[in-house]
Simulated assay, not measured.
Amino acid sequence: MDIVPTWDGNTSTLAKWILRVETNAKRSPMVRRQLGMAEQRDHCELSWDNIHDEIEVYYMNRAGVERTWKQARALSYREPGHEDEHPGQSSIRKRELLDLVFHNTSESEQISEILAGAPRSWLMTLTPRLYHTTRELQNAIKLQEDDLMEIQESFLLEYGHD
């Protein structure tokens, strides 16, 4: 069970923790079952999926989902507390929140949501209709990261806002 990262109990870090454990659980059926044994309830001992469901029920109830959804929608590039982030980091942060609350959204919906928090100036470089998956979008953002930062800085100097 050394592969299970420790969660600090802070609901704002829950998404990242779940995604890290989920990655470990996908490695093999045995790991998935063993992760389920970390909880004492019989139901949870069956698999990681059951523990994941229990966590969602408790922490991601309707109020939690709505709070996380609002947080994801409001997330923006270089917002307070993330002033030094790069474009790729911002888009990953948003995608992680979206993944936590929306398991069944389409790739195009996720791409739209990710770009909704991006500076409008990025659309001078990125062409959303060319990306069919969030992975393609992430790759494009990473590839053009320096250009996106330079365009944003120039835009802010000229107009003072996004």
Rank of each mutant, 00 (worst) to 15 (best):
Ile151Tyr: 04
Met124Trp: 08
Leu137Ala: 11
Thr6Phe: 02
Glu158Asn: 13
Gln89Leu: 12
Leu97Ala: 03
Asp162Thr: 09
Gln40Asp: 08
Gln144Asn: 14
Asn61Gln: 14
Pro128Lys: 09
Thr23Asn: 14
Glu109Val: 02
Asp147Leu: 03
Asp162Asn: 09
Glu54Arg: 11
Asp53Tyr: 08
Met60Ser: 02
Leu35Asp: 03
Gly9Pro: 11
Pro80Cys: 11
Arg20Val: 08
Ala15Thr: 04
Lys16Phe: 08
Thr134Ala: 11
Arg20Phe: 08
Leu14Lys: 02
His43Ala: 07
Ser91Val: 03
Asp49Trp: 02
Gly88Leu: 05
Thr13Gln: 07
Glu109Ile: 05
Thr23Tyr: 03
Glu39Phe: 13
Pro119Cys: 04
Val4Pro: 03
Glu113Pro: 00
Gly81Pro: 09
His161Lys: 14
Glu66Arg: 15
Asp2Trp: 10
Glu83Val: 13
Leu156Thr: 14
Glu39Val: 15
Val21Arg: 00
Thr133Pro: 10
Glu145Ala: 09
Gln110His: 11
Glu158Gln: 09
Met60Gln: 03
Asp147Gln: 10
Gly36Asp: 04
Tyr59Gly: 00
Pro128Phe: 00
Glu109Pro: 02
Leu156Arg: 06
Gly81Asp: 09
Thr125Phe: 01
Val21Met: 01
Tyr77Ala: 01
Ile3Val: 14
Thr125Arg: 14
Ala116Gln: 03
Ala140Lys: 00
Gln40Pro: 08
Pro5Trp: 03
Glu158Pro: 00
Pro119Met: 01
Ser12Asn: 07
Thr127Cys: 05
Pro80Asn: 14
Thr125Ala: 15
Met124Arg: 10
Asp2Leu: 12
Tyr59Cys: 10
His52Thr: 13
Trp69Ser: 08
Asp146Cys: 07
Asp42Ile: 13
Arg78Glu: 08
Pro87Arg: 06
Glu45Pro: 14
Ala116Asn: 11
Arg20Cys: 12
Ser91Gly: 13
Arg32Gln: 13
Arg32Phe: 05
Arg41His: 12
Phe155Gly: 00
Leu130Thr: 15
Gln71Arg: 10
Gly36Ala: 14
Ser121Glu: 13
His161Arg: 08
Glu150His: 15
Ala63Val: 12
His43Met: 10
Ala72Phe: 00
Leu148Arg: 01
Val65Pro: 12
Asn24Leu: 11
Val101Glu: 05
Asn24Val: 13
Glu153Gly: 06
Pro119Ser: 12
Thr68Ser: 00
Glu79Trp: 04
Gly81Cys: 11
Thr133Asn: 12
Leu14Tyr: 12
Tyr59Ser: 10
Gln34His: 07
Ser47Phe: 05
Met149Lys: 10
Gln110Val: 02
Val31Pro: 00
Asp147Cys: 13
Ser47Gln: 06
Lys94Ala: 04
Ala25Ile: 04
Ile114His: 00
Asp147Pro: 02
Trp69Glu: 01
Asn10Gly: 09
Leu97Gly: 01
Thr133Val: 09
Val57Trp: 03
Ala140Tyr: 00
Lys94Pro: 01
Glu109Trp: 07
Phe102Thr: 00
Arg93Glu: 06
Ala116Gly: 12
Tyr59Lys: 07
